[in-house]
Design a protein around this nucleic acid. Structure first.
Lengths: 105, 105
DNA sequence: TAAATATGTAAGTATTTGCTTACAAATATA
DNA sequence: TATATTTGTAAGCAAATACTTACATATTTA
């Protein structure tokens, strides 16, 4: 389990999106996170490692526990990419026209 | 190459994101798209199949050519998911506070 | 100090992914 | 009609992915 490690890939997994959602509410230690899933604790541990490695969560040791905090700034990378295409579902046909004109220049 | 087929997974691949970017400017037939990449044409064909299957592009036959049009409404699914977390990089600390309060209720 | 708790990590595995080459099929053109 | 063009798809493959179980390592608590 290595290689590409970017935000797009990180959020492509539904379990990791759910972990992000959980810790965005408040920091949680690993076991508390794992309680929300049926898959094994090590599996959650691996997902958290991925999220941590690509900078989406911060792991803070507190005694024997490790609390995971959301640090979602990197999601902006995805947001920025998506933003270019919002005209496609905004029903703003003028905006779409302008977008296409601009791209063809 | 089957199984999970959702928008998050579709855009997790850099080649597919680039294809989306290309056809968002204007419809292109498959060979024109493939010209922009070093990987083989069948590889591009497979990526287009994935994008088409999850509804991000529309393939329109024109003679022996197939033109790919962007149909990016489904990206809204990603946009909506991301939007919940924009407070994390907006430097609006008040908004973040309110977000967290709201979640804990 | 011994036992319990919280966690990481290694090894193994089935499935998925992203590519390749080879070939088939449809349409256009000479 | 023969040939060129545009494309899909099958088969094969190496690597990545998402798990599992087993075990090691801290830290806390009894």
């Amino acid at each position: 389990m290595e290689a590409r490690r970017d935000v797009f890939q990180a959020i492509s997994d539904p379990t990791r999106r759910e972990i992000i959602n959980l810790v965005s509410a408040k920091p949680l230690n690993l076991n508390s996170i794992a309680d929300n899933f049926t898959i094994s604790r090590p599996a959650i541990s691996q997902h958290i490692k991925i999220l941590s490695e690509c900078g989406l969560i911060l792991v803070v040791q507190k005694g024997r526990e490790r609390y995971c905090e959301a640090k979602l700034d990197k999601l902006k990378e995805v947001s920025d990419w998506i933003e270019k295409y919002t005209v496609f579902w905004n029903n703003k046909l003028d905006a779409l026209g302008q977008f296409l004109e601009k791209k063809e220049q």
